[in-house]
């Protein structure tokens, strides 16, 4: 799992690469903590190179989503691979997280 965060004005661009599972979910949490404490109006996550997410990973997205919603900002997940998107669909997370 590799997380790269760049900033573009009020927008945070996050690039996810690799697998997000139980073994690195904590690290992912640490990586995105600055975003949770930040004031970005939009968090744009590029999931092009994301290979897998476990339920623990979904939890991380959920926490991020709740954090973003609480401060009326936006979270967008982009270019998700079909088999990853499927996990979001099955669990119903597609309803609560904006995936485009």
């Amino acid at each position: 799992m590799n997380v790269t965060i760049t900033e573009e004005g009020a927008k945070a661009l996050v690039k996810l690469e690799g697998r997000l599972d139980t073994t690195n979910a904590d690290q992912f949490m640490k990586d995105i903590t600055p975003l949770m404490n930040g004031t970005h109006e939009e968090i744009d996550v590029d999931c092009t190179d994301m290979e897998y997410t476990s339920s623990q990973g979904l939890r991380m997205f959920l926490m991020l989503q709740k954090n973003v919603s609480a401060r009326r900002a936006k979270l967008v997940l982009r270019n998700m691979k079909p088999h990853v998107k499927e996990v979001f669909d099955i669990t119903g997370f597609s309803h609560i997280i904006n995936i485009v």
């Binding site: 979904l58 099955i90 669990t91 119903g92 997370f93 597609s94 309803h95 609560i96």
Partner: peptide, 9 residues
Amino acid sequence: KPNLAAGLF
């Protein structure tokens, strides 16, 4: 229909 995982909302 997937609905949503329980415990969230």
